[in-house]
């Protein structure tokens, strides 16, 4: 009987497995092939095996490390800001949302906008000559910060990303906050626990697993950022806003160094895999 189910399971799972193999497997095999080959657009169909040369080239390229450092800083700062803001909003607005659930729909609007569109939108509204924000600042106080100047551009892209994705963290925290049994809060209140202490000693510890997941997801998303930065400021003067994804894109399409870009992609994948494994291990350990 068990054997029969095993066969049935295998048969039923095979279309999905084949589909995934075709969709994910083919690019993975191609990336591995190109990552270990001397490949350009002229030799796409006849790559020559070059061992670890592409990996040596990538790790010797200071732009790669500059991009890795940018992605690390960007991913960390945005993850922390989004989670802090999302948590604060979820806890602060939870009573209001309990009465008026439509507030959630308004708060998550930024998430609905495609990141590339978001970049283009900021490019317009922050422009000194066409954008409404500099226009009103000039009208009211006679000057406006140059939002996309070399001095301010990192802060601007951080804020743009934070404003778009805080609602994601907010949704996670709101769900976690609302799932805390009301009896626990009532019991604590009856015992005379003050709201601040209630949050730090009871609610926050219960939301820690969600916080961990939210920080992790937002870090990964921030680390691999591409579209909103690329449409807003490109790779930045001197490559100052080049993220890992932008580095891979430009190395592949702009410079035609296909093997090198695939090697960078493989390194990115391996590092993400390591981070994911460590995070899962920490999560398991914390839940024990």
């Amino acid at each position: 009987m068990v054997k029969k189910y095993k066969l049935e399971n295998a048969v039923l799972a095979s279309p999905t497995s084949l589909f995934l193999l075709a969709i994910l497997g083919f690019p993975v095999i191609l990336s591995l092939t190109y990552g270990f080959s001397e490949t350009s657009f002229e030799t796409l169909r006849s790559p020559e095996f070059s061992g670890l040369q592409n990996f040596r080239d990538v790790t010797a390229d200071k732009t790669f490390w500059q991009a890795a450092w940018f992605s690390l800083r960007f991913g960390t700062i945005t993850a922390v800001l989004e989670c802090a803001l999302g948590l604060a909003l979820a806890v602060y607005l939870a009573p209001l949302i309990q009465k008026h659930s439509w507030v959630v729909a308004i708060l998550i609007i930024p998430m609905i906008v495609a990141p590339a569109m978001m970049g283009l939108m900021y490019r317009l509204i922050l422009n000194e000559f066409a954008g409404p924000i500099p226009y009103y600042l000039y009208s009211w106080i006679g000057s406006s910060p140059a939002f996309l100047s070399p001095k301010n551009v990192f802060t601007t892209v951080i804020l743009a990303e934070t404003l778009q994705w805080t609602p994601f963290a907010f949704l996670l925290f709101l769900t976690a906050y609302q799932s805390i049994p009301q009896e626990i809060r009532e019991a604590a209140t009856v015992d005379g626990t003050r709201p601040w202490r209630l949050f730090w000693k009871i609610e926050f510890p219960l939301m820690l697993p969600t916080l961990f997941v939210a920080v992790f997801i937002r870090f990964i998303d921030g680390f691999r950022v591409f579209d909103n930065i690329y449409t807003l400021v490109g790779s930045g003067p001197g490559g100052s806003t080049t993220s890992m994804s932008i580095y891979i894109f430009e190395t592949f399409l702009r410079r035609g160094e296909i093997g090198k870009s695939m090697a960078a992609a493989i390194l990115l994948f391996v590092s993400a895999f390591v981070v994911l494994s460590v995070a899962q291990w920490l999560l398991r350990r914390a839940s024990r």
Binding site: N127, E128, F129, A146, F147, L148, S149, P150, K151, N152, V153, L232, V233, G234, G236, P237
Partner: peptide
């Protein structure tokens, strides 16, 4: 303009 390091044709 100080942010002209982000300008292209349109800006």
């Amino acid at each position: 303009p100080p942010d002209s390091t982000s300008y292209e044709y349109a800006e």
